[in-house]
Write a protein that binds this DNA or RNA. Structure first.
Length: 420
DNA sequence: TCTGGGGTCCTAGGACCC
DNA sequence: TCTGGGGTCCTAGGACCC
C-alpha cells in the first residue's frame, strides 16, 4: 500500500518530524480564583459548578491540589466534597474547633467570564510562541513549534513558554513536548503540576511502553476494562499485540489505539474549526414527573440555545432534545429541517414536540441542542421571511412543522448566497 | 463514584435513490 | 414480484474529553 503511487500533494515532507507542544493549565479555575484573591493561595480550594455560596448543590469543577489531599475530586457532588472538606466559613463562624481549621477549605462558584478573560491572556502568549495553535478547551492547547525551535533546545523553549505565562498572567501550566499530538498530550500530564516533559523522537516508544492503557487519550473506563480483559494492561502491551482483534472489537478506534500506543499519529496541529453544535442542559434536584416544570425548563433551554446560536451567527438545520430518566437513561430525539434556520420560536416548538413522549415520565435532566450548523454570512432578513412563509403553511402538514410540500429550501438558500 | 454541563466522534440500522 | 450493490442522509445511542 505505502509503496503505491502517491496522490499529488501528499509529499514526503508531511512525514517529517514535527515538534508538538501541549500546554495544559494546572487546575485552571482554581488558579484564576487565586489570581484575584491571593488569600486562597496555598489553601484547599474547590470551584463548584452549579454551586452557590452557602449551598450544598452542584458539582466540583476543579479542586486545588491541597483540596485533593482530602479526597475531593473533580465531578464530585459538592455535598460529598463538603463532607470531606468542610467550609472554612464554618470554622470562621465558630462552628468548628481551632484544631479543625486546617481541615477546612474555600469554596467558590464557577465564574466563566473571568476565567475566559484569563484564558485570553494565556492564548495571546501561545500565539506569540507558535505559528499554529489548536485550542482544545479553555485551559488546553496544542502548538506546532517545529519552525520555532529544535529538539536539542526544545526544553528551553518550553520553559520559556511556561515562564512567560507565569510572569505575565500569573498561572502555572504543564507542558509536554513530543513528535506527535497524542504523545505531547500524555507528556504534559506526566509531571503535573508545573511540569515539563520532553519526549524526543527516539525516546517515544520507551516513553509510552510502561503507561497504563487508560492514560492513552480516548481510552476511558469502558475501553480500559475491555482492554484489560484482553490481557492488555499497558501501552506496550497494546503496541505488541495483533491489531486485528483490536480493530474487530473497537472498529476504527481500535486501529487508532494501536497506532497511538506505538507512537504513530500523523495528525497535524490545526486550528480548531467552527463548532458543530450548541446545547444547553440542566438537571433537577430530583426526578420530576409533572409536565409543568419540565416544559418550563425546555422553554428556557430552547431560548438559551437559540440565543447562543444567534449571537454566534450560526444557522441550524437540526433541533434536538435530551431527557435523562432514572436510573440514568439518556434519551435523545432530534429532527432535521429542510434548510438551515435561525428561528427561536421554531426551536421552542420542535423541542416541545420532540419532548412529548417524555411528558409524564420522571426526568432528572433535560437538554436542548441545535446542530448541523452553518456559519456562512447570510442575509438575516430574507432568511427570516423564507421561514415565515414556511410557518404559514405548516398547520396542514402532519409529518413536520417546517417542511410543507412544495417548498424548496435549496432555492431559498441559493437566493441568499447570491448576496454574498 | 449514584451522576454537572458543554462538547466531539463513531456506529448501526433504516429510508431512499440509482 | 423478487432482487444486486453502492451511496447518502437521518436518527439514536454510546464512549470519551475537559
Amino acid at each position: 500500500m505505502s509503496d503505491g503511487p502517491r496522490l499529488p500533494g501528499v509529499e514526503r515532507e508531511d512525514d517529517e518530524d514535527r515538534i508538538v507542544c501541549h500546554v495544559d493549565a494546572d487546575c485552571f479555575y482554581a488558579s484564576c480564583e487565586r489570581l484575584r484573591d491571593p488569600k486562597l493561595c496555598g489553601e484547599p480550594l474547590v470551584v463548584g459548578m452549579g454551586y452557590e455560596a452557602g449551598e450544598t448543590v452542584g458539582a466540583v469543577a476543579t479542586a486545588s491540589y491541597e483540596a485533593r489531599e482530602f479526597g475531593v475530586e473533580s465531578a464530585q457532588a459538592i455535598s460529598t466534597a463538603l463532607e470531606r472538606l468542610p467550609r472554612r466559613a464554618a470554622y470562621e463562624a465558630g462552628d468548628l474547633d481551632d484544631s479543625e481549621r486546617d481541615e477546612t477549605g474555600y469554596y467558590r462558584p464557577v465564574d466563566m467570564d473571568y476565567y475566559e478573560s484569563v484564558a485570553a491572556d494565556v492564548r495571546e502568549i501561545l500565539h506569540d510562541c507558535a505559528d499554529v495553535v489548536r485550542e482544545v478547551s479553555i485551559d488546553e492547547a496544542y502548538l506546532d513549534v517545529t519552525d520555532r525551535t529544535a529538539w536539542e533546545v526544545a526544553d528551553g523553549f518550553a520553559r520559556h513558554i511556561k515562564d512567560r505565562i507565569r510572569r505575565e498572567v500569573g498561572v502555572t501550566v504543564s507542558v509536554g513536548v513530543a513528535p506527535t499530538m497524542s504523545a505531547a498530550k500524555i507528556a504534559s500530564d506526566f509531571d503535573k503540576p508545573d511540569g515539563l516533559t520532553v519526549v524526543q523522537p527516539g525516546e517515544l516508544r520507551d516513553f509510552l511502553e510502561p503507561l497504563e492503557v487508560d492514560l492513552l487519550h480516548g481510552v476511558g473506563p469502558v475501553t480500559a476494562r475491555e482492554l484489560r480483559e484482553m490481557g492488555l494492561e499497558t501501552a506496550g502491551d497494546v503496541a505488541a499485540t495483533d491489531p486485528e482483534p483490536l480493530a474487530e472489537r473497537f472498529g476504527e478506534r481500535g486501529r487508532e489505539l494501536y497506532d497511538r500506543a506505538r507512537g504513530e499519529d500523523d495528525r497535524r496541529v490545526e486550528p480548531k474549526g467552527d463548532p458543530k453544535s450548541f446545547s444547553r442542559e440542566s438537571a433537577f434536584a430530583e426526578p420530576v414527573a409533572e409536565p409543568g416544570p419540565k416544559y418550563d425548563l425546555i422553554e428556557t433551554l430552547a431560548a438559551a440555545v437559540a440565543d447562543r446560536a444567534q449571537r454566534e451567527g450560526a444557522l441550524y438545520r437540526t433541533i434536538g432534545v435530551k431527557a435523562v430518566t432514572p436510573p440514568y437513561d439518556v434519551n435523545t430525539r432530534e429532527r432535521s429541517l429542510p434548510g438551515p434556520v435561525d428561528d427561536p420560536d421554531l426551536v421552542d416548538r420542535i423541542a416541545h414536540d420532540l419532548f412529548a413522549e417524555f411528558k409524564t415520565e420522571p426526568v432528572r435532566k433535560l437538554g436542548v441542542r441545535v446542530a448541523n450548523l452553518e456559519f456562512a454570512a447570510t442575509d438575516q432578513a430574507s432568511l427570516e421571511s423564507w421561514e415565515r412563509s414556511e410557518d404559514d403553511s405548516d398547520s396542514t402538514d402532519e409529518s413536520s412543522t417546517v417542511n410543507p410540500a412544495g417548498t424548496d429550501p435549496t432555492t431559498g438558500q441559493s437566493s441568499l448566497t447570491d448576496f454574498s
